[in-house]
């Protein structure tokens, strides 16, 4: 029956919204309370300006002056670290689409039911997409509560946009990991390679940004971190072209995973 895999995945995994979303929300809440005065932020930005630009770039900030604003500070303090936290969730979720159950032998039972293979991937991916939106929403709640107690008053619409900006980024990581799961099958191998892809993607973006005119700079469009741009999103809202690229790439990888999974043996 259509939707049963989706709802079962949601029922089994909804607590991840609390674990991961709660984690990022607490981070956001704490970050807003640590430096909760605009004067302190300006001093903070002055200190940051004395640092080599590459250090700021490593944490996703383009220039130190943006740190003097509530939006720039939150992008730097919450959404840069948040990207890594949610990337970890993306890998875990992607592994759970097929690799975990295949390695555990559960997939034999699941695929003996009247369910086409594509539905297993599609419905689970859709369930994790909903969970990702839940994590983003909980992150927003943490920042909103933080803004009540803090002197910092970021633009809440842009803050919401930055939270939602986590979604396509995460969906792509889930899709990459799910695809790797259909190819590599083993949980440990899939986790290791997916984590490697995230790290390499981050390094390409960071080093390419720091060293313009090099080959790494020309490779930046291949890095999904280069479409994340949390600082720009916090400053001026959703960047629709980035969202489109990440979403299309994610859907293409899901389609590839469906195709590959449908044509191969299920391991034991």
């Amino acid at each position: 029956m259509a939707g049963t895999i989706f709802f079962n995945t949601l029922r089994r995994s909804w607590r991840q919204i609390l674990y991961w979303g709660g984690g990022i929300a607490i981070l956001g809440f704490v970050v807003m309370l640590v430096l909760n005065d605009i004067d302190v932020l300006e001093q903070y930005a002055e200190i940051a300006a004395s640092l080599p630009p590459v250090i700021l770039q490593a944490f996703g900030a383009q220039d130190a002056s943006s740190l003097a604003t509530a939006e720039g500070y939150i992008a730097f303090g919450v959404f840069t670290y948040g990207a890594f936290i949610i990337a970890a969730f993306g890998v875990v979720a992607g592994v759970n689409i097929t690799a975990s159950e295949e390695e555990a032998g559960i997939l034999d039972v699941v695929l003996s039911l009247p369910v086409p293979r594509w539905r297993i991937i599609f419905e689970r991916y859709a369930a994790y997409a909903v969970i990702t939106v839940g994590i983003a929403a909980l992150t927003f709640v943490g920042l909103w509560i933080g803004s009540i107690f803090s002197e910092l008053k970021p633009d809440m619409l842009n803050t919401l946009a930055a939270c939602l900006n986590l979604v396509p980024f995460t969906l792509l990581i889930i899709a990459i990991t799910a695809f790797l799961g259909t190819v590599l099958r083993r949980r440990a191998a899939v986790t290791a390679v997916a984590a490697g892809v995230v790290i390499v993607s981050y390094l390409i973006d960071f080093l390419g940004n720091a060293a313009s005119g090099t080959i790494l700079a020309s490779l930046r469009p291949l890095s999904f971190f280069s479409y994340y741009e949390s600082e720009s999103t916090m400053m001026s809202g959703i960047i629709w072209s980035n969202l489109l690229v990440l979403t299309v790439a994610a859907l293409a990888l899901v389609a590839l995973a469906l195709w590959f999974f449908d044509r191969r043996d299920i391991g034991v």
């Binding site: 559960i106 039972v109 039911l113 009247p114 034991v268």
Partner: peptide, 13 residues
């Protein structure tokens, strides 16, 4: 699969 019932040799759930 609607008309088949299957018990694997090593059942994992």
């Amino acid at each position: 699969h609607r008309r088949i019932g299957f018990l694997p040799g090593e059942l994992n759930l």
